[in-house]
Design a protein around this nucleic acid. Structure first.
Length: 1049
RNA sequence: GGGGAAGUGUCGGAAUUGGCAGACGAGCAUGACUUAGGAUCAUGUGCCGCGAGGCGUGCGGGUUCAAGUCCCGCCUUCCCCA
């Protein structure tokens, strides 16, 4: 290579130089300021605001960078885009840090925000920082308080004493949505949650339950809609009143005391309600329990409080319960039915009292069998199946032959030690009736035979009884007892037949079906049964149609300091009095002493606590509970419209909480992105908030965010553990270290081989705790526990020096990132190494965005190479020139327009990974034709198109290249390129030819070729012909000119 | 137990919605350039087979000229609810 050609070394891509430069320029120019412009359509792009925990991690980037890309894309498409950012700054971690490290929560929070704001800026996002809103500042939370007052005024906020979820570790109550999983643990800290009876503030989100079920106005992921729908848990049914029999009530009881309100989704099963069950917490339990039962009931109530909800509700669990001694009247048939207390009924669902229909509810059935309560079937089995066991010796020998001749299906098998019995399975009413007649004729004296599942007939020698009421239950049982000694101990007919395993699968069902044994309703088909019974109940004043929701009102009180104060004052004479709007904000005092217990210091802050009643002027105290932080994040999308609006001014209850002009232009949010983990928390609350504020006249639309998309989670990268080489002695099964050397997982090739001898153990560290390591000492598995004394000095040859046990890295599979596992990926490090543009592009390229997955530290190199290739492709002249031809030009054109089309469509649909893939393809296509087309107009056009398409993704590099191409600042103010369909059409196309579904050849035809021409070419193909020899062509198909399919025989 | 989502090379992942399975990238292999390579460039890379060819999208059936995609039945994983 000659010296002259080496004169100018190609300049390398150096993001570390380019990126800060442009960030400063954009900042100085206010390039991303969102200003109302009625000439342009608006686009409000929003990504979930971070909690300022101290570090922006790769998960934040994964969520925000693609959102930023899409916001930029929309901007280039001609929208006036607002992309704001703020911080969800109240919350427990700040307060815990205050307690542990003696830093004020405000200081801790604001320091973190400073740091995180800086980290976020390094992303180069188009965030309009002028609109930043921080929820813990008075200018912000004064409006959170204002909303509280508004909701109070509207009757949406109320205070009541109720059993609420309480986290003993966080020392505060929680909303039901914050209690997660089967174990009922605290969403924040993972401690098991307990129930406490406390006076708390609630917001009436249930008033909006039906409207929250309507997603017709929003484009939200199916998954979120499903989760919210399930959470709201609407069920239709009826409310029915069961009266406690008057003699079971105390003499001084007020009228109506004994009315037990029951919600049921199955009013059609009312006739089968043979007992009632109250939740142990039900307020009426104590009043109705008969003196003789008091002790047992009380003991049971105590025991129930110690169990978790999931234990109580499990269908697996052995049922427990106690009888109260009292009875109620079933309103449909005036049957006197016993009232029990059992923990499988919860106070939180429905009314805390159920009518038990053991024949058609699994839990009720188990309970009835266990406690000997009657089970009366009232809904026919939809499958019509019945079973009958003909007992040994109850019929003549010839009966089996008779059954056979009559076409019944049965088999003979031993019944215990009693001999061979006939196990008959019947299907349908006609067959059952025939069977009953047949058995009735043949039954020997002193026997009976039953048909269960359908029919429920008990055939005796003199009569046939049907199990259709509590009375017949006892009558049948008494007859059976007199005939057969072993059933003496059975308490109900159902218990008796339940003892025969043959019957088990047909005794109970929960499907809808024709009503039976239900007086005038018998015969009512299942599809209309519920409505008809409900209407009948309504007519007679026994009940009415009702809807029940699983959703509970939102508990907003928190017994902590670091939150927005609840603006309520308690006065001995006036009660709970709202702080006047004009007096807001109720300021959180700064000079507080934090209790090591976590108890709210507001309770002991005289200046905050003591005040005067706004109504009577007397001395009064403030509410010391603060609001759930989800209150602040329920309206932050509106806070960005005009942050800290009218701060310092006194405003009335009629004020607008934000600039009306800003709201009219920007709201609601057009595209919202964030994690799916908030499906029934933030995402449900913010919808409620918007609807409530609409009803308050503050907003004029129904939904806060029109489109929602969720990103997945980036998990930790699996990694090998370090290798340790330990000398020491055996202590039983464990090995005590006397000296220990650690070889880094990064230099696996230098590791010594695994060993396990009397004095030495060596291998990869698979796990670690405070005092020991688990070491893999054989290739296959074989873990050895190595005990390490606290003061043992360890050598780390790979990092020169010594360290402690905590510095030893252990084997990690794919897990969530966490500091303690040392598998956290820091965007700061990545940006320093590769540049922000590379990190942004990699996060888009490496995963399906909505799915996420484990981090891959190797893959990022591919993106680095790509950007570097783009850089040199555009800035360096080609080494070799080639002659251009028309075909090359068309190929280039096609590549450009194909890229425009697919990148546009992919960004629109959040398919970020394929958008990048198409850009890489475009880059490859450009390098292929560079020698021939550089530097023609066509080439220049192609190159600037590439820069424009990359501008949202790699904003810094695009700006730099744009400038170096001599184009006017800024690339981000340019118009998004459009494609020409005509240019996508190829001159010739390659078409595969299939013979019987297998590709046997490829033909090249002109783009516009007719189907006949394509067929012709296909049949002429050499390889295809080889496969057509000696066979008969049945047909030839050319679908859409895409391929040829030849069917032969 | 009910509901939902998913299952594709060594890995991340594509596949115009029924039309060439494996785009794009990582990794690996070979070669070139190099004092050197964890740089760069080029080529190859689903599996079996020397080959023609065969087999391949969790498993088993089905529909179709054609199935990763549609239908039926299973298995596994994750999430939500009970």
């Amino acid at each position: 290579m000659s010296c002259s050609r080496r004169m100018r070394m190609p300049e390398a891509y150096k993001p570390q130089e380019i990126e800060p430069k442009w960030q400063q320029t954009w900042e100085a120019d206010g390039l991303y300021k969102a200003v109302i412009d009625h000439e342009k359509p608006k686009f409000y792009a929003l990504t979930m605001l971070p909690y300022p925990s101290g570090d922006i991690h790769i998960g934040h980037w994964y969520a925000m960078a693609p959102s930023d890309v899409r916001a930029r894309f929309k901007r280039m498409q001609g929208y006036n885009v607002m992309f704001p950012m703020g911080f969800d700054a109240f919350g427990l971690p700040a307060e815990n840090a205050a307690i542990q490290r003696r830093i004020h929560p405000k200081e801790w929070t604001l320091n973190n925000i400073d740091r995180e704001r800086h980290q976020l800026r390094s992303m180069g996002a188009m965030i309009d920082w002028d609109r930043e809103a921080i929820s813990c500042l008075p200018g912000y939370y004064r409006w959170s308080e204002w909303f509280f007052l508004k909701f109070y005024e509207m009757g949406l906020a109320y205070r009541k004493k109720a059993p609420v979820d309480y986290c003993p570790s966080c020392k505060t109550t929680l909303a039901r949505e914050q209690v997660v999983g089967d174990e009922r643990i605290c969403e924040r800290c993972g401690a098991p949650v307990v129930k406490r009876d406390l006076e708390q503030w609630f917001w009436r989100i249930t008033k909006y339950a039906d409207e929250l079920l309507d997603f017709s106005k929003i484009d939200w992921p199916e998954r979120i809609r499903l989760l919210q729908t399930n959470w709201i848990g609407r069920s239709e049914g009826a409310e029915v009143v069961f009266r406690v029999t008057p003699e079971d009530l105390p003499e001084d009881a007020d009228p109506g005391t004994g009315d037990l309100l029951v919600f049921t989704t199955r009013p059609d099963t009312l006739w089968g309600a043979t007992f009632m069950v109250l939740a142990p917490e039900h307020p009426l339990v104590n009043a109705i329990t008969k003196p003789a039962y008091h002790e047992a009931v009380h003991a049971y109530q105590l025991q129930a409080t110690r169990q978790t909800e999931i234990e109580r509700l499990s269908t697996e669990k052995e049922k427990t319960g106690v009888f109260t001694g009292a009875y109620a009247i079933n309103p449909v048939n005036n049957a006197r039915i016993p009232i029990w207390v059992a923990d499988y009924v919860m106070m939180g669902y429905g009314t805390g009292a159920i009518m038990a229909v053991p024949a058609h509810d699994e839990r009720d059935f188990d309970f009835a069998i266990k406690f000997g309560l009657p089970v009366i079937p009232v809904i026919a089995r939809p499958d019509g199946v019945a079973k009958s066991l003909v007992f040994p010796g109850s019929v003549p020998e010839a009966f089996a032959a008779e059954l056979e001749a009559a076409g019944f299906s049965f088999y003979a098998a031993p019944v215990g030690s009693a001999g061979m019995g006939l196990h008959v399975t019947l299907q349908g009413q006609e067959e059952i009736e025939r069977y009953v007649v047949l058995v009735g004729k043949e039954l020997l004296p002193g026997n009976w035979c039953e048909v269960v599942g359908s029919g429920w007939h008990f055939i005796f020698t003199d009569t046939v009884k049907t199990l259709d009421s509590v009375e017949t239950d006892q009558e049948i049982l008494a007859r059976c007892k007199s005939l057969y000694e072993p059933v003496q101990d059975n308490r109900t007919t159902m218990e008796m037949v339940h003892n025969l395993p043959f019957y088990r699968d047909v005794l109970f069902h929960h499907e809808s079906g024709i009503m039976i044994h239900s007086d005038a309703f018998s015969g009512t088909p299942g599809d209309v049964a519920r409505q008809q019974v409900t209407a009948w109940l309504d007519e007679r004043g026994l009940g009415h149609a009702a809807i029940n929701y699983r959703l509970r009102d939102w508990l907003v009180s928190r017994q902590r300091y670091w939150g927005a104060p609840i603006p309520i004052i308690y006065c001995d004479t006036c009660g709970a009095v709202p702080v006047p709007y004009e007096d807001l904000p109720v300021l959180l005092p700064d000079d507080v002493d934090f209790m090591p217990t976590g108890e709210s210091p507001l309770k002991y802050h005289d200046g905050f606590l003591n005040t005067t009643c706004p109504k009577c002027g007397g001395s009064a105290t403030r509410e010391t509970d603060t609001m759930d932080t989800f209150v602040c994040s329920s309206w932050y999308q509106y806070a960005y419209l005009s942050p800290y609006y009218r701060e310092g001014e006194s405003v009335s209850g009629n004020a607008s909480p934000w600039d009306p002009a800003e709201q009219a232009y920007w709201a609601p949010v057009d595209t919202y992105t964030g994690g799916a983990e908030h499906a029934v928390l933030h995402l449900l609350y913010t919808r409620f908030f918007t609807k409530a504020l609409r009803d308050a006249g503050v907003l004029h639309f129904d939904e806060p965010m029109l489109q929602l998309r969720n990103q997945g989670i980036i998990l930790g990268e699996p990694r090998s553990g370090d290798c340790v080489d330990v000398s020491g002695t055996w202590e039983g099964a464990a090995f005590r270290a006397t000296s220990l050397t650690v070889y880094s997982f990064e230099n696996k090739e230098t590791w010594p081989p695994p060993t396990r001898t009397d004095v030495r153990v060596r291998g990869e560290v698979m796990d670690r705790d405070e005092m020991s390591l688990k070491v893999r000492t054989t290739e296959g598995g074989g873990l050895t526990v190595v005990l390490v004394d606290e003061d043992l000095e360890m050598e780390f040859p790979d990092q020169e020096g010594t360290g402690s046990l905590a510095d030893v890295l252990y084997h990690l599979d794919v897990e969530k990132m966490s500091k303690s596992k040392k598998n956290v990926v820091s965007p700061d490090t990545l940006v320093a190494q590769h540049g922000a543009d590379v990190v942004r592009a990699y996060l888009m390229f490496g995963w399906r965005w909505e799915q996420g997955g484990p981090w891959d530290s190797q893959g990022i190199e591919g993106v680095t190479r790509w950007l570097s290739r783009v850089w040199h492709l555009i800035l360096d002249p080609p080494h070799e020139r080639e002659a251009a031809d028309e075909e090359t030009n068309r190929e280039l054109d096609r590549a450009v327009h194909y890229a425009i089309k697919s990148v546009t469509e992919d960004l629109e649909t959040f398919s970020f990974n394929t958008a990048i893939a198409r850009l890489m393809e475009m880059t490859n296509a450009l390098s292929k034709v560079r020698g021939a087309t550089w530097p023609t107009d066509l080439w220049n056009e192609a190159v600037s198109t590439l820069v424009l398409l990359m501008a949202p993704i790699t904003p810094h590099m695009a700006e730099e290249l744009w400038a170096r191409l001599g184009k006017p600042y800024s690339v981000h103010q340019q118009t998004w390129p459009t494609w020409d369909e005509a240019k996508l059409v190829e001159d010739t196309v390659e078409i595969p030819v299939q013979v019987n579904g297998k590709v046997r050849g490829r033909i090249t035809v002109a783009a516009g070729a007719t189907d006949d021409e394509i067929k012709q070419a296909a049949l002429e193909d050499e390889n295809v012909q080889r496969h057509l020899e000696g066979v008969q062509i049945l047909k030839v198909i050319v679908p859409r000119g895409q391929l040829v399919s030849i069917v032969v025989r």
